[in-house]
Amino acid sequence: MNASEPGSVITAANDALRRDFPLKPFAIRHGLAGHPLLTLPRIAQLAAELPRDLIEYNSGKVAISQDPDAIPTVDLDPVEVVKRIETAGAWMVLKRVENAPEYRRLIEDALLSVARARGFESLRDAGFEQIEGFLFVSSPNSTTPFHLDSEDNFFVQIHGEKFFTIYDNRDRRLVAEDEIERSMTKHRNLKFDESFAPRGTEFHMFGGDGCFVPYQWPHWVRTAGSHSISMAITWKTREVRRANDLHFFNSMLRGLGWPQKPPGAQPAFDAVKLAFYRTGTTAVRPLRASMTMRRILRRIALGKRANYYLKDA
């Protein structure tokens, strides 16, 4: 891979990349604000090109602790949402943008700058595997409800003002193991209580700012008085992929009435479950090339609400 482009470099103050990564959140700076791939016209073009099941959007007027079954919709097609984002009252995410080669190069260059700052010469040496990108476009005064993500994430703010609050859940006092399983397999939204506030760290961002979001740390986000463009640059290490597979399989077993201990509590049994689960998922992976089959597989594995974001398609 070529040296990372200056415009894609991610940096952090006070040596946080070496001191806190990947266990604690910290602020970052980046050179992606104003990049031609991250402007509204180019994002609208991308929205027209992506498979429909890789685009999710709804009203941005939602609660921090939003009921997934009561999320208000937006009566526009994806391209119009982007074009009218200043007035649409919407929140949108374009998923897996790394499938477009130019976006993959952008994401990999950004992560390579992090790898080199940490003393590695390649993405693989630094543990950056299964790299993915998620582009967010939000109207003014929009909220992203309380949720968690099952990957590590450099979140970069491209345009607009955003408040991003992350909560420490390492002891599972905020979000229990069964809720983590549910958020991964049903809907990501989690219940929020004001008593969580002392455990939160707020990052106030403008274009060029960002933060590191550790694996499965819950968070919620709000925009200010102008539209917002942001990107989540994510990856999954071998350890994260293993934990995720176990969470998914544990969720399936819990649904059958066999609740499981969290990953790591029973290493020998984890190995058996992991082998069984991965054998099954390997067999169906080729089917996921078809959007129709992806919808069917999600419904079989995750339930009838698994394709909730396609209800308008």
Rank of each mutant, 00 (worst) to 15 (best):
V97C: 08
A110Q: 03
V114H: 00
L135Y: 01
I131V: 11
D125H: 12
R116K: 11
G127E: 10
E129C: 15
S113G: 15
E129N: 14
L112A: 01
V81C: 10
E98L: 02
W91Q: 12
V93N: 12
E86A: 11
E80C: 06
I131F: 10
A88F: 09
Y103H: 11
A126W: 03
P78V: 00
A88W: 05
W91N: 10
I107M: 00
F136Q: 09
I131G: 09
R105G: 04
R105A: 09
A115Y: 04
P101A: 02
S138K: 12
A100S: 08
S122Q: 01
V97S: 04
L123P: 03
R124D: 15
G133W: 05
E98G: 06
W91K: 15
I107H: 00
I131K: 06
D125S: 15
E108V: 08
N99F: 02
A90W: 09
P101C: 02
S122E: 04
Y103G: 04
D125F: 06
I107F: 01
P101H: 01
L135E: 02
V137G: 08
D109F: 10
Q130N: 12
I85M: 10
F120W: 03
S138V: 02
K83D: 13
V93Y: 07
V114I: 03
L106M: 10
A115D: 00
I131Q: 02
N99G: 03
E98Q: 07
F134P: 01
P101Y: 03
P101S: 00
W91H: 13
N99Y: 01
G89Q: 11
L106K: 02
E129I: 10
G89C: 09
F120G: 05
E102H: 08
V93K: 13
R84G: 09
S138L: 13
M92A: 03
L112I: 00
K83V: 11
P78Y: 01
G119W: 04
A90I: 12
R124C: 11
D109Y: 11
N99I: 03
K95A: 13
D77A: 13
I107R: 00
Q130S: 11
L94Y: 10
E80G: 06
G119T: 05
A90C: 11
